[in-house]
Write a protein that binds this DNA or RNA. Structure first.
Lengths: 206, 206, 206, 206
DNA sequence: CATGAATGAGTTTTCATTCAT
DNA sequence: GATGAATGAAAACTCATTCAT
């Protein structure tokens, strides 16, 4: 039998196996043997590569967060045209978010699972905080030239990401037509700019 | 503590015990004995009142959904003044939502747990769909006089509830100052009206 | 099926099952299921009565130590004739020790096992220290009227108990004729008195 | 550290590694990987040099017994002065035993472990019997010129070695001052001679 | 109704052993 | 001779569920 000498590759193979399992069962209801079966390896091997089931989870979450993060990087690379209109850039960002992240059902399902885990696991919660912090920070930076006030802009950015996560949730749990979600999200991309541009009347209203 | 002699009372006592347990551990990691201990009853009794642990969960989710629903009813009762300005009414509604629902941490934590369960349990998902459907429908009805187009209005209402759920999630998972969330949500209540009022330019933009 | 409502009795039943198992295998090689089988109960039940395998061991060792201790008490009861010649009393004590303790093969085998456990388990070591302390103290008290010096007497008593334990060990491990051990031990009982009586020449010799 | 290229050297390296491990954990709780780590070799290699974990144990016990035996030889070499007073020679022997064997804590701990293993493993028991037989035989031979009766002398020698093993046990398990053990053992060396010299009154007493 | 003893399936984890490289 | 990936048996432990009392 062929022996593996690519430890990193095997680890990813196992993490992807967990990813597949999570499409069917929660992490708690997924057994080590389930993951091993999905990975096509012996269950004892999982304890060779990872020190516990919890350790697999932690590595998996890092793996997913890195994926999530690399999506941001990917978008950044393809949108670093200098001198681009900030508004168009923000619009493009939301377009990307909708298509690749929020409405990515596989990813969204995994995130719902991770939210629940984070509820009771402080380490996981910290990981989520860092990830969301990056997205919020990134969006804040894009909005500041338009909006002005940094604190308020950060609030708007937080609200925008919260909205996207809420939409991700609903796109999984509700059986609304997927096109409706697309449409809503596209409309939202335009709107967020006008909200950011003239927050003053709103602000007066507060 | 007063002991309930009636079965219904005892059942609720058990469901509330689960509610307490869920503030500490996930449902899967909460054992029948944990729930029994929290309820102050013998664990064997849980199988007298419920046919399985799963059955307790289902009843619990109904209990929480009813609670959620009764919040809507409660608000309706205290806001059914005829001839009230629809805009003020909507604003009042969001005020209520923010304070009593979205930023109710205990409730929000439970909802995150339920979302995760719904991910893998169709029955629970159906329950969630019904509940969210009610909220969306209710908000849609309030917005229609202002917005006009029913389909678009429903989209806006869906987005609004999604946003609230996203904020509930963030209020639990992020360690942002709670006042920021309050402020954001208050600002949002004003904003949603203006969004609904002139959706046409947005629509044109789409 | 008859349900048990004598928890203490059931616990002892399990501890005795372990005792039987230890005649065949070491504690580490005795599984929870082995003990359960020997006790004629379901293996899950062992975790109902004891919180872990370690906990069974600790309770077992207490059980054995109590047994060992009750042997001392038993002898005390039948030998508390007032005004008895101290020398005869000491002789009688060693007679009892030889017959009932040192040459009790079942008990000695268990003690060898406990010695080994104590090697790596501080709790168990403390238990052994207490038990041996009692025997040494008891013997010291009997010897003091004869020997005089308390510190030296305690040394003699310690040496005497050490010797008995060494003999217990050899009676298990060597295949010497059992009668030889009896004879040696009987001779020893006489001798210890003369050793204690005139320790002074010995002492001078040191 | 110098690497041995010869198989015999490597084997000893592994056996010594086990020796180190046994200062911390019992044999059963010491894993092949623990031993390999302590030996600084790959765990797979242990199965090249030994056919099983059990085989390592057997070889280890031989190794320890040889060590124990070589102590006797070492003493013999340095005490084979012809015409030496037998009594002084016996005294010297006990002095050696106390210092190098009985109160050698590392060795004693290993012996307690081996006793326990011998309890359930006939092969190991046989090895112990041979080793103790040698010591008893050796001491018997030294005592015969003084004591006379061979059978009785062997009993005395057996008792003396049993006592030393009991003291070894107590020096490990009890927390008595080490100096007390030294003193007791030194006193014992003198005493054994007088016991052997005039066993007749004792004998009469039997 | 209430209790808690009893059951047995299922889970994570450890580990000696094998063997391709 | 080494290495370390891979295997599979066996272990301790958990727990929902049942049921005699």
């Amino acid at each position: 039998m062929a022996r593996n000498n690519d430890a990193a590759g095997k680890k990813i193979q196992i993490l992807q196996a967990l990813d597949h399992c999570l499409q069917e069962k929660s992490f708690d209801r997924t057994s080590i043997k389930d993951i091993a079966r999905a990975a096509g390896v012996n269950h004892g091997l999982l304890h060779y590569y990872f020190k516990s089931k919890e350790d697999i989870l932690i590595n998996y979450i890092d793996y997913v967060m890195d994926l999530y993060k690399s999506m941001l990087d990917e978008w950044l690379k393809s949108n670093s045209i200098p001198g681009m209109d900030p508004k168009l850039r923000i619009e493009a960002f939301f377009e990307f978010m909708s298509e690749r992240v929020t409405l990515n059902k596989t990813l969204s399902a995994v995130f719902i699972e991770i939210w629940e885990i984070a509820l009771y696991n402080p380490n996981v919660r910290t990981k989520l905080q860092r990830t969301y912090g990056e997205w919020i920070g990134f969006l804040t930076n894009m909005l500041i030239p338009i909006a002005g006030d940094p604190a308020l802009t950060r609030q708007i950015a937080t609200a925008a990401i919260a909205f996207l996560e809420g939409m991700a949730l609903f796109s999984i749990l509700l059986d609304t037509d997927a096109r409706d979600f697309h449409e809503t999200l596209r409309g939202f991309g335009k709107n967020i700019i006008s909200v950011a541009e003239k927050p003053y009347p709103c602000r007066d209203a507060l």
